[in-house]
């Protein structure tokens, strides 16, 4: 087999994968613009499902709540995560390795387990279900991502710059504000976008922690799906996927998780 043939075959394979990844999403988006309730072809363009969406107070409320929760999560997780990353980068101390390993469980343990554990604990301390619990959970899931992304950016930072600033008389806050933060700002922005995406797309933990009738968008979609499909779900799902892909595309511009640049 010639190298050229193999390379073509490889590219064909890649094209198939991309088709596999995007086709169902495309179909869903396509169907959300189809007038027929039962996905009948021929295609009849209509915005009626989107119009219906706007009139569905339950969905609008859930969407607003999801965005609010995601924004709160973003702000809290980005601030706490950046502070922790700076400390992990700047100082040498005992137990540092342990703290770094402790970031792993929230990412690696299936959300089913973390979600149910949070449900039990929040009930145990009297907080119960509801938006505060959801935010607490989302921040915990987003924190490790923020720390990983910001730390990756910090790894490219020359620590002697901080020493130089200190030798010139800058106190620790001035050093952070004038020297460290300007360098890692792109990483912080990427981390914030990751945090937003983690929260906005989060289903499992929200599912266990949100109150019935007061749920986030993904939870509402899940319960609607189990009742039966409607093209309205297509419409809102299409909106969600467009929003979260846009957020991640933006994040990709600020971090180099695409490997080398």
């Amino acid at each position: 087999m010639s190298g050229v043939f193999l390379a073509r075959l490889g590219k064909l394979w890649l094209a198939c994968i991309l088709f596999f990844l995007y086709a169902p999403i495309a179909v869903m988006a396509f169907m959300s613009f189809n007038a027929s309730q039962y996905y009948q072809l021929p295609f009849d363009f209509s915005l009626k499902w989107y119009e219906k969406l706007a009139g569905n107070q339950e969905i609008v409320d859930a969407a607003t709540r999801s965005v609010m929760i995601a924004l709160a999560t973003t702000v809290i997780a980005t601030i706490l995560g950046t502070a922790a990353s700076v400390a992990l980068f700047r100082y040498e101390f005992r137990g540092k390795r342990f703290l770094q390993v402790m970031l792993f469980p929230p990412i690696a343990i299936p959300w089913l387990i973390t979600g149910t554990a949070m449900l039990i604990f929040f009930f145990g301390v009297g907080l119960g279900r509801g938006t505060p619990s959801v935010i607490i959970g989302h921040v915990a899931l987003a924190l490790p991502y923020v720390i990983v992304v910001v730390s990756a950016r910090l790894a490219t930072f020359d620590a002697t710059l901080e020493e130089a600033a200190r030798s010139l008389g800058a106190d620790s806050w001035t050093v952070t504000r004038e020297v460290t933060l300007p360098w890692i700002s792109s990483g912080v922005i990427a981390g914030a976008l990751f945090a937003f995406a983690v929260s906005f797309d989060q289903f499992v933990v929200s599912y266990f922690l949100s109150e019935p009738g007061d749920s986030t968008l993904p939870v509402l979609i899940y319960t609607s799906i189990r009742k039966g499909f409607t093209p309205e779900i297509n419409a809102i799902s299409t909106i969600i996927i467009v929003v979260s892909m846009a957020v991640m595309l933006f994040a990709a511009r600020f971090s180099n998780f695409g490997g080398e640049r």
């Binding site: 890649l14 994968i17 991309l18 990844l21 995007y22 086709a23 169902p24 999403i25 179909v27 869903m28 169907m31 996905y39 995406a197 906005f200 797309d201 289903f203 993904p218 979609i221 899940y222 799906i225 499909f229 779900i233 297509n234 799902s237 969600i240 996927i241 979260s244 892909m245 991640m248 595309l249 994040a251 990709a252 998780f257 695409g258 490997g259």
Partner: peptide, 22 residues
């Protein structure tokens, strides 16, 4: 590469739902 990993960062529930339609 970005195109391949982008879906991973979008809503998993919605993506599963899209398969239901297909």
């Amino acid at each position: 590469f970005l195109l391949v990993i982008l879906p991973f960062w979008s809503n998993s529930l919605v993506r599963i739902f899209s398969w239901a339609i297909v």
